[in-house]
Amino acid sequence: MTVKQAIAVTVNGKQYQREVEPRLTLADFLRHEINLTGTHLGCEHGVCGACTILLNGLSTRSCLTFAVQAHGQEVTTIEGLAEPDGTLSPLQQAMAENHALQCGFCTPGMLITLTELLRDDPNPDDAKIRETLTGNLCRCTGYSGIVAAARQVAKGGRGIAGD
């Protein structure tokens, strides 16, 4: 065991101060130190993408980042995507409308990846959406609903189905 280090990390706008072992991954910090268990671990080797979070606004594997590296940085997780009053983001709403999740385990990573994409490129085509999603594996949905959700937000801008 190595000496613990004090870190301060801002997660979803709130600052958390903890003493952690350097080897603690950011994913485990989020899940087990500050109890934000919405971020999931599906492989712990950087392929499945379930642990993807925004680190200073950029999608990042929290299983390949140590918590100590996030000291002084800003993290956004799935718990931070809805409005403070609980209103779901247009993407979250579109995910429900398009059956973009089944077991929900890959969902945090999917939401984070697409939130970043749609922020940086508000009108991506299907090819761009799919290419960006290659960093996130889903075993349940066959991706169709996830792509449709992103497409809906990209086109509609409001994220409301149909009309």
Binding site: L58, T60, T132, T134, N136
Partner: peptide
């Protein structure tokens, strides 16, 4: 090279 999420880091 990899994916958007890995290229970010």
């Amino acid at each position: 090279v990899g994916h958007r999420q890995t290229r970010n880091r």
